[in-house]
Deep mutational scan, measured.
Amino acid sequence: EPLWIRPDAPSRCTWQLGRPASESPHHHTAPAKSPKILPDILKKIGDTPMVRINKIGKKFGLKCELLAKCEFFNAGGSVKDRISLRMIEDAERDGTLKPGDTIIEPTSGNTGIGLALAAAVRGYRCIIVMPEKMSSEKVDVLRALGAEIVRTPTNARFDSPESHVGVAWRLKNEIPNSHILDQYRNASNPLAHYDTTADEILQQCDGKLDMLVASVGTGGTITGIARKLKEKCPGCRIIGVDPEGSILAEPEELNQTEQTTYEVEGIGYDFIPTVLDRTVVDKWFKSNDEEAFTFARMLIAQEGLLCGGSAGSTVAVAVKAAQELQEGQRCVVILPDSVRNYMTKFLSDRWMLQKGFLKEEDLTEKKPWWWHLRVQELGLSAPLTVLPTITCGHTIEILREKGFDQAPVVDEAGVILGMVTLGNMLSSLLAGKVQPSDQVGKVIYKQFKQIRLTDTLGRLSHILEMDHFALVVHEQIQYHSTGKSSQRQMVFGVVTAIDLLNFVAAQERDQK
């Protein structure tokens, strides 16, 4: 057995438009009618409502009807409940999964919650491996369901041993009777949507819809739904939504950006999952974080739909894509998950301010006199920076000697690579993860907040409520011999709460 199987392995699926269902090699399930009293909570997966979006479509000038398939009504709160249950049931049916076995899954959280929910009911041990950027709410729900959680670096490539995929496979090879159901490759993922989600949409719309818009992560949702719609409703256009920084969209030119990270969760990847059939997507749109969270908040405030950030991405694209539809036509959007997962993220004004998705003037509360002053007023001194090749031991000596707790790590040209902190280095040394002679590049981390000289002290204040420091950066445009230009970030300084307090105190003292 291989040590790991690539999540982007070539698909062996034989589905073709027009091929009889009787030739399918898979076990198919028909939607079942729910009894009045459910035998367990797993029976509350599927049969989610279709809700008309009344205000947002009109606000953006849509002539067509805009409908939302509300997947956050599933038992675990997301569309991923469907595939989690289906993968477990299919693994039980073919004898792969037996009582007492362990389920391991690399996930952005929602599939993990679905699997942990099913594992709690069915009696399996469950280990979820997820990147650090995923919300604390997801972690809390997983723990409450009895799952064990392993976190991995957000910026690790999918084929790196440190990625959530790599760590999951390492655990599988170490733990007896453990299984990775593997949402990236498992046919049960798109089949769950082909058999149930798509049929529900067709039934709820009486077979009449002209466009379907869905955000894409593993691709199982859009693949399964689109294949069924292509068979039953061939005139329906399928629109895929991919965040900026991901590479799922086609044509490839759409993916060209210097951005590699994004805040919206559960969609987009740096590889093409095996289950994603991009041939059934008629057109791709890219979405960005700001519009995703703005539209998610709009869905909550104006439509009462308590959905997550990827739902915002989907609707932001839908109001663009559906401009081509006329009166009497219908566009369906998939709202994948609930706001429950993001209470401390985009639902929080403070978080939105820190990330730059909300401006101070958007909030009406009274601010102190210094709130709208610029960061450049602080008069920061030149920063202490270190090269990635310097040793951890030497870096600790320098920081202690100069009285700093942290320093930016830059390359020879001064471009920011990340940050090192005294606390992080000492804990890594004590844990045996690094040696004093190791290069400081081994303990770089990139989960820090950046701020510009033109940003306000109010925004800085919000950042420092949650973080010990902020890195002050400025952009530099560099022209190359080819005539092309590129933008790079340079370090201007490091600012802490002490710097802000000293500035405010000094100004008030001078005024007296």
Rank of each mutant, 00 (worst) to 15 (best):
I239M: 15
G240S: 07
V241G: 09
D242R: 06
G245C: 12
S246I: 01
E250N: 13
E250M: 10
E252G: 09
E253Y: 06
L254E: 04
Q259N: 07
T261C: 08
Y262A: 04
E263N: 07
V264F: 01
E265A: 01
G268L: 01
F271N: 01
T274F: 01
D277A: 07
T279A: 09
T279P: 13
V280H: 01
D282V: 11
K283E: 13
F285R: 03
K286G: 01
D289P: 01
E290W: 15
E291H: 01
F293I: 01
F293R: 01
T294C: 06
A296P: 03
A301N: 11
Q302I: 01
L305G: 01
L305R: 04
S313L: 05
S313G: 09
S313H: 04
T314D: 01
V315R: 05
V315G: 07
V319D: 05
A321T: 10
A321I: 04
A321N: 01
L325K: 03
G328S: 11
Q329A: 11
R330L: 01
R330C: 12
V332A: 11
V333C: 10
L335C: 14
P336Q: 11
N341F: 01
F346D: 05
L347W: 01
D349F: 04
M352V: 04
L353G: 08
F357N: 04
L358G: 07
K359H: 15
D362R: 15
D362N: 01
L363Q: 07
L363P: 13
T364H: 09
P368Q: 07
R374F: 10
E377S: 10
A382N: 15
A382G: 12
L384G: 08
H394I: 01
H394C: 04
T395Y: 15
E397F: 11
I398K: 09
R400M: 07
G403I: 07
G403E: 07
G403C: 12
F404E: 04
D405Y: 08
D405F: 11
Q406V: 01
A407W: 01
A407D: 01
V409Q: 07
V410K: 06
D411L: 09
G414E: 14
I416W: 05
M419L: 12
V420G: 13
G423F: 11
N424I: 09
M425T: 15
L426T: 15
S428N: 09
S428E: 15
S428H: 01
L429N: 13
L429C: 14
L430I: 12
A431S: 05
A431D: 12
Q435N: 15
P436L: 11
S437W: 15
Q439C: 10
Q439L: 09
V440Q: 01
G441T: 01
G441R: 15
K442T: 14
V443S: 14
Q447Y: 08
Q450M: 14
I451T: 07
R452S: 08
T454D: 01
T454E: 09
T456D: 12
L457Y: 12
R459W: 10
L460D: 01
S461P: 15
H462S: 11
I463L: 11
I463H: 15
D467S: 10
H468A: 05
F469D: 05
F469C: 12
L471K: 04
V473C: 15
H474I: 03
H474T: 15
I477P: 01
Y479R: 15
H480I: 09
H480E: 09
S485H: 01
S485I: 15
S486T: 14
Q489L: 13
M490S: 10
F492M: 14
F492K: 15
V494L: 12
V494I: 15
T496Y: 04
V504R: 14
A505F: 12
Q507G: 14
R509E: 11
K512V: 13
